[in-house]
């Protein structure tokens, strides 16, 4: 069956790469990429349609091309470049609502894939070490991208109830990082002096950008709709990541951390919500066995390899005098001998 795929958010890095990737797939007849601004890079076989998903016009695009698969990549993590937090929230929440409304009306739509985020699990000291998909947040996110993600998932669940005939897959990504993508975490770890919260050290999980695309591809062509966590194997401690990057770790007592966050935010370099401060303190782990069992997807890069790939592609110069660790050490799993 030749398929017609609509990809939203193609002017952003991941959306653009996904449109190119799907355009090369033998089962795909047409890829339509939509966004409000033209994509900076060539979309390959994919066609670009300038449309705003916050506008009912998107319904016409879906109908005209009788789109059967919608891949929603336009849930954005940072207001930098989106025109501020309120614009970001509108793109994420109103955009998703409009897109889902359009999908609900379109009889041709048979499949929906939504990029979500592991931030929906919230962050707190009471979190289990690893979240599985059936667990709920101990402390629900209250601001920023994390809250948007919770709301987006809520609307998607509503859509699942109203259109049970559509196969819906949501992918909860741990922080996506890699050679090309620009994320708040990438910017944070690129600071020469990295402020952290004194006395705390979060566990960080990373998804390589190539693995993120492969996961969306697996969800699009796989036959197991559902909600899945996506991440590379293993974790890095925040302090460990900063050390590997050769940056200076600057632990600040909690009150100063909030002040610093406000300063960095004012300069518009990184938007840091209080949610993200909590993340630096406690971190988060997600279990990825479901996607492996049901979609056969295995991330090819571990968290550590993803981080090293990021470092390799960002020759920002090391702040600390010693060299980067020479060889990547093998990833350990829990268990095994004690010594």
């Amino acid at each position: 069956m030749a398929r017609v795929v609509l990809v939203t958010g193609v002017s952003r890095y991941l959306g653009g790469r996904l449109a190119r990737l799907l355009g090369q797939h033998p089962d795909v007849e047409r890829v339509i990429g939509v966004d409000v601004i033209p994509p900076p890079d060539d979309l390959g076989n994919a066609e670009f349609v300038r449309a705003d998903i916050r506008n009912p016009v998107i319904a016409k695009v879906i109908k005209a091309a009788s789109v059967d698969t919608v891949v929603h990549m336009n849930v954005i993590a940072t207001p930098v470049g989106a025109g501020g937090r309120s614009a970001m929230k509108e793109i994420n929440v109103i955009g998703t609502m409009q897109l889902l409304a359009a999908c609900q009306r379109a009889a041709s739509v048979k499949q929906l894939v939504v990029k979500s985020s592991a931030t929906v699990y919230g962050v707190s000291a009471k979190d289990p070490a690893m979240f599985t998909e059936d667990m709920e947040a101990v402390r629900l996110p209250r601001s920023g991208f994390a809250k948007d993600s919770v709301e987006v998932e809520g609307y998607v669940r509503g859509f699942v109830r109203r259109r049970p005939d559509v196969a819906v897959t949501m992918l909860r990504f741990a922080n996506i990082l890699g050679p090309g993508i620009d994320t708040p975490l990438a910017r944070y770890l690129s600071l020469p002096v990295v402020p952290t919260v004194m006395g705390f050290d979060g566990r960080i999980q990373l998804t390589h950008e190539d693995d993120a695309l492969a996961a969306v591809e697996a969800a699009t062509f796989g036959a197991a709709p559902g909600t899945y966590n996506v991440s590379g194997d293993g974790v890095l401690m925040l302090s460990q990541a900063i050390a590997r990057a050769g940056r200076v770790n600057l632990p600040l007592p909690t009150p100063f951390a909030s002040v610093t966050r406000e300063l960095v935010r004012r300069f518009g370099y990184i938007d840091f919500t209080s949610e993200q401060i909590e993340y630096l303190k406690y971190g988060r782990g997600v279990d990825t066995s479901w996607i492996t069992e049901r979609l056969g997807f295995v991330a090819r890069h571990s968290t550590r390899q993803t981080f090293d790939a990021f470092l390799l592609a960002h020759p920002l110069g090391r702040v600390l005098p010693w060299d980067a660790p020479e060889e990547p050490t093998p990833v350990t799993t829990i268990g095994g001998v004690a010594r």
């Binding site: 010693w322 050490t329 829990i334």
Partner: peptide, 17 residues
């Protein structure tokens, strides 16, 4: 040196053997 470079392992729970 390993500590300063961050070249050590932790498991999923953050256990640093």
């Amino acid at each position: 040196r390993r500590r300063l470079e961050g070249s050590y392992e932790v498991d999923d729970f953050g256990f640093d053997r």
